Simulated scan of single mutants.
Amino acid sequence: MQRYCLIANPNAGKMRKVPLLNAVRSLLDKAGLEHDVRTTDAPGLGITLAMEAAAAGYRGVLAFGGDGTVSEVASGIIGSDLTLGIIPAGTMNLFARELGIPTRLEEAVQIIAQGHTRRVEVGKVEGRYFLLGASAGLDAAIVRNVTPGSKRRWGKWAYYLKAPLTLLTYSYPAVRLVMDGGVTMQGGTVVVANARDYGDGYRIAPGASLDDGVMDACLFRGRRAFNYPRYFWALRRNRHLLLNDVDYYKASNFLLRPVKENTKIPFQIDGDYLCDLPVKIQVIPKALSVYSPEA
C-alpha cells in the first residue's frame, strides 16, 4: 500500500486553538502523499492505531500532535518496516526539534515528501518504549501529580503549578543507579535522557545524541527540598553539570531501584507516570526509522 496513515491528536496544543487538520490534509494532498486519517483522544490509543496501521500495510505513519502523540505512535510501529513522519502541533515538540523538523506545517510536510530517513535509538522499560527521556524522583513525582485534565487545560503550565507543593511534600528517598552492570551511584533524582532537551526545553544532556547507541544519565545527589531550586536555577542557565553534587554518565543499560527496599519512588517516561521503582532501562539502537531533514 502506498498510502500513509495520519494519526492526529485533537487535544494537542496547537490543535485546540486552530482547526489545523484540514489544512494539513490539504498540504499532504498537494505534496502527493495519499493518506487516511485516524484520531487519538485517549491515553494509549495512539499506540493501538499505529499497530493497526503497521498490520494494514501502510507505507508510513504520520503523527500530527505533540511529543506525547509522537511517542505513542512511534511505540506502535517499532519492530515494523514503517517509517514515522512527524508534523508538530504540540506545546514543546522536543523530539521534532531534536531531529531538526520545523514547526511550520508546510515545511514539516515537505520533509516527509522528500523521503530522507534516519534511524534513531529508543529506550525500553517495562514493555514500553520512550523517545525523549525517563526519570525517577522529584521530577517523576511532579509528573505523577499532574492530571490529564489539567494537562489539557494548562499545557506545560500544569507541571509548574504542581511543582511547588510537590517540592515541599516529596520525601526524597534515595535512588540507586546502576549502569551497564558496573558503575553504581545514588541520589535524590535521576534523569535518563535520549535527547539533549528535556521538560520545558532545558538542555539537561548537552552530550546526548539520538543515534549514538547510548543514553545520558544525569544524577542529582541532593535529597532535601532546598537542593532543588539551586538545581533548577543552574539548569536554566546550562550550568548544572558544573555543580559538585550533579553527576553525568553515558550507558546502554540502567537499573534504577530504591536504596531502601519497599520504598515507593515514582518513575515516568516521556512525561507520563509509568510505575514505581525498580525498573530496568535498555537502549535499543536504530530501533525507529523517522523522516528527517538531510544532514
Rank of each mutant, 00 (worst) to 15 (best):
E126G: 07
A89W: 04
L235D: 08
P285L: 02
R59A: 03
K280F: 14
Y198L: 12
N145E: 14
Y248V: 04
S80D: 00
G66M: 05
I204S: 07
G46A: 03
C5V: 15
A234W: 02
G66I: 07
S150C: 08
T91N: 06
G65Q: 08
S171N: 14
P19L: 15
G68C: 01
L161N: 01
S135R: 03
T166C: 12
A251L: 08
T166V: 11
Q2P: 07
F226G: 08
R144V: 13
K156N: 04
F226A: 12
V109R: 03
R152W: 06
V70H: 14
L6A: 01
G133Q: 05
L132R: 03
G76E: 00
G222Y: 11
K124M: 15
G201L: 12
G79Q: 11
R3G: 10
I281Y: 08
V192D: 11
P293K: 00
N244E: 02
R153N: 01
K162C: 05
S26K: 15
T40N: 05
R257Y: 06
L255G: 06
L177H: 04
V183F: 12
I7S: 01
K124R: 15
A54W: 09
L161W: 02
R237A: 04
D272S: 04
M179V: 04
E72T: 10
P43M: 07
Y58W: 08
A193I: 14
K280M: 15
D211W: 13
I111M: 06
D270V: 09
T40E: 01
A174N: 04
F254M: 15
A113Q: 10
N227G: 08
N244G: 02
V18G: 00
V37I: 10
T40R: 06
G137Q: 04
A23Q: 15
G199A: 08
A74Q: 11
T184R: 13
S80P: 00
N194V: 03
V246H: 07
R153W: 02
E106S: 15
Y291C: 07
Y228L: 15
R144E: 09
N244F: 04
D197Q: 14
L165G: 12
I112N: 10
E98M: 08
G213R: 01
A89D: 00
G68K: 05
R221K: 10
Q268F: 11
R38V: 08
E72Y: 14
L131G: 00
D270M: 07
I265T: 00
